[in-house]
Write a protein that binds this DNA or RNA. Structure first.
Lengths: 311, 311
DNA sequence: GTGGCTCATCGGTTTTTTCGATCGTCACTA
DNA sequence: TAGTGACGATCGAAAAAACCGATGAGCCAC
């Protein structure tokens, strides 16, 4: 006793309320009249009230029955809504998704990406969190984020990564700097220079060092910036030179600074941008779809950002 | 396939969402882990989406899962509310009741009754419909009303009646009328008098005639009133005499008219007030309770209204 | 690798659901 | 007043499901 009613019983109640006739209501529910009768009785027993007033000639609702029918309809509708919601979210690129992005990508990729997403997938709600790679990975594991957009590789357990495209590093230097006058620029030319990089924690720092085969000890200057904008200001003030990801050059980050940029002659001085998600994530197919979308719409197609084939 | 989810499955989902652990959630639901696991899987299959992201180390909600949990809680709460509503309405004299009352009772009994009901049973909502007996009986059979308060007997099929008390008829006559001067008043004295009664359809007419052992043909005056107030005005204007139910004298219906009243010397010149409901009605116990309440609080205890024992 | 913890899966048992057939009641009719 | 038809309630058997304990497979930590 004291069992809760079941949705089936509520459906039966609504059917009887609609037809005011057990036989017809049973037919409408595709069950036998005896089943319907038993179901209604069980419901009444569970609720402890008579919902219907039966007469061999007529079926009437009691006052409680009337209110119960109203509420049953609401409940059944809520269940239908839940099912419909799930059906909608089964469609790719719909519903909500929580994306983590590192600070050296977000300002250069998101504006265009979000604009295109809104236009082509209006049902898709992307929540963005901008943070350092390690914090994003932690949040991913905690289930606070669904997907990360960052520079890979980045060490993490139980995750799956999808490389999207390469992003070259370019040298940013003040006018008159000697490195602007050599014929061909190679990463080894950076040795001994006043190379400025983002502070510890930004993966861009490690990736830039690795791409140029440098160690942290090769850096002669202790100043470390907290954002690429700060970095640019430091270069503009003649404190040193730096490496910028090419995607940053799409924005007016250098406007009015007089800073010059040049690409490296050698290949491989670059970072790789990719997606990362928990290996058990339910929406990996959707993540790959979003990855393809980013590849196509997230960046302007120029040299230095080489689209990669799907792994 | 395409089955609707069940409440049990929604409960399981909420439990897992709360504990983020199948084993503990199963224990909280008093079921085995395998049952819970199967239940969740079936729910996911029905909805066509993955709600949980399982990992041998952690259980996480998917985005759809989070929304589904919110809605599941709402649904389960709505079901609980329904059960609570039914529990409340199982209490006597609570919830709603639709009462039909005839016009020759309503103005004299309802004001006091409703006031007392509001005071002693604030959870009880009584909806009143005032109409002729036949209309009330029809509405009762249609299920539009739950209970009638009228003068009995009144012919009706499939109903149960509960007499409450007797209500004497008194003679109402203009000053100077010869009937005011005889020693003892008997119903036979009405023969040949200009007796005015309510128009056809009001049961008071029939009951008054029967109580006085008169036929409609004994009435010498063709005028028929549509309400007791009209009747009183006609008597005040000297058109004739009439019979009033004693309960009407509790109100200032005669104020300023100069009309006199006197009781009959013989016994039995009265109508019986009672309740009537469909024989299959679910709340007959509550009806009897309300009947007792009316007997105790509905009228002022004076001579001429004899409380009756329960049938 | 090994042990421990997790959720998924598998058979077998118990419980529930469902159905067709039948019963009792009621209103209407002959 | 007995017969008739329609209705919901009830019953027993069959079918479906829910449920459990045991086991399996994946993962992480040591």
């Amino acid at each position: 006793m004291s069992h809760p009613p079941t949705l089936k019983q509520l459906k039966y109640l609504c059917a009887v309320a609609e037809h005011l006739h057990f036989g017809r209501a049973a037919r409408a529910c595709y069950i036998s009249q005896s089943t319907l009768s038993a179901g209604i009785q069980e419901l009444e027993e569970h609720l402890g009230v008579l919902l219907l007033e039966r007469n061999s000639k007529r079926v009437l609702l009691t006052e409680v029955g009337r209110e119960a029918v109203v509420r049953s309809h609401q409940i059944l509708n809520a269940v239908d809504d839940l099912a419909a919601l799930c059906e909608r979210s089964a469609l790719p690129l719909s519903g909500r998704m929580r994306l983590g992005v590192i600070p050296t990508i977000a300002p250069y990729l998101l504006p265009r990406l979000l604009q295109r997403l809104r236009a082509e997938h209006p049902e898709f709600q992307l929540f963005i969190r901008e943070d350092l790679s390690q914090h994003l990975v932690d949040a991913l594991h905690q289930g606070e984020l669904d997907l990360l957009l960052l520079a890979i590789p980045f060490p993490a357990d139980g995750v799956e990564s999808l490389p999207l495209f390469d992003d070259d590093f370019v040298l940013a230097y003040p006018p008159q700097h000697p490195l602007g006058r050599i014929a061909q620029l190679h990463s080894r030319d950076l040795r001994g220079q006043d190379l400025l990089l983002l502070e510890e924690g930004h993966c861009l720092r490690g990736h830039a060092l690795a791409a140029c085969r440098l160690n942290a000890s090769d850096l002669s200057v202790p100043y470390q910036a907290t954002s690429l904008n700060t970095l640019v200001q430091m270069v503009a003030n003649g404190i040193g030179i730096t490496l910028l990801p090419r995607m940053a050059l799409d924005t007016p980050i250098l406007a009015g600074t007089g800073i010059r940029t040049r690409a490296f002659a050698e290949d491989g001085v670059r970072r790789t941008i990719g997606l990362m998600w928990r290996r058990q994530a339910a929406r990996s197919e959707e993540f790959r779809l979003l990855g393809e979308f980013i590849r196509q719409h997230g960046v302007t197609p120029t040299e230095g950002r080489t689209p990669l084939k799907d792994s």
